[in-house]
């Protein structure tokens, strides 16, 4: 009996192979608890944030912006905080890396919006990076805040007077929520503060030792 002359046999063989690969690469991850256990700080979306997520989906933001900081040094650096930013906001001078994205941050995402393409930057850690005024200006006229940007102007999310509509307000609420399922900004700044305090105490100690010895 050859499959070339038995259509049923051919389809059966194809089905077995498909089931095999699907089981290992799809069903096994679906049963992996670590993939759907929320992170410590993870909170479900509020009604407004959820509405913002819908606007994000409707306008196809996810075609040009990914939401995943890949587990690579250059990405944790790029999407972290630079020295200027940490000094301005927290009074600490340090280069702070963003944590790479973790499965537990996404448990409330349905659908997921990991994305595949970065015409614009990744947004997984954008929450808290800019204030709302900047975000509204950027949304209405991207080139006013970011000269050289090729993002479309979302004028239809603003009224005649240039004020944000409910949809724009929801969208920005959603953006500000992104990346906050891990409280990395506060926690890492705190770590840096402690580290710097420790270093300066050590410096004082060695200075005192030096004086005593003299």
């Amino acid at each position: 009996m050859k499959f070339e002359s038995k259509a049923v046999l051919l389809v059966l063989g194809v089905a077995v192979f498909m089931a095999l690969g699907t089981y290992f690469t799809m069903v096994v991850p679906l049963t992996d608890e670590s993939l759907f256990t929320p992170t410590k700080d993870a909170k479900p979306y509020t009604a407004v944030e959820l509405k913002g997520k819908e606007v994000y989906q409707r306008e196809g933001c996810w075609y040009c912006h990914t939401q995943q900081v890949r587990n690579l040094l250059e990405e944790t650096q790029r999407y972290g905080m630079g020295e200027e930013e940490t000094f301005k906001r927290f009074g600490v001078r340090a280069l702070i890396q963003a944590p790479p994205s973790q499965p537990g941050e996404y448990v409330y995402d349905k659908p997921h919006l990991l994305g595949t393409r970065r015409v614009g930057p990744d947004l997984a850690r954008v929450g808290g990076k800019y204030d709302n005024t900047w975000q509204f200006n950027h949304l209405r006229d991207p080139r006013s805040t970011s000269p050289g940007s090729i993002m479309p102007s979302y004028t239809w999310l603003f009224d005649k007077n240039g004020l944000p509509t409910e949809e724009a307000i929801a969208l920005i609420a959603y953006l500000q929520k992104l990346g906050t399922n891990i409280k990395w900004r506060e926690e890492r700044v705190e770590q840096v503060r402690r580290l710097q305090a420790k270093t300066s105490t050590q410096e004082n100690h060695s200075l005192a030792e030096l004086k005593e010895n003299n």
């Binding site: 690469t25 799809m26 991850p29 679906l30 993939l35 759907f36 499965p103 996404y106 448990v107 409330y108 995402d109 349905k110 659908p111 997921h112 990991l114």
Partner: peptide, 8 residues
Amino acid sequence: YSGVNDAN
């Protein structure tokens, strides 16, 4: 599906 499994 939801979360990273939805992506997978």
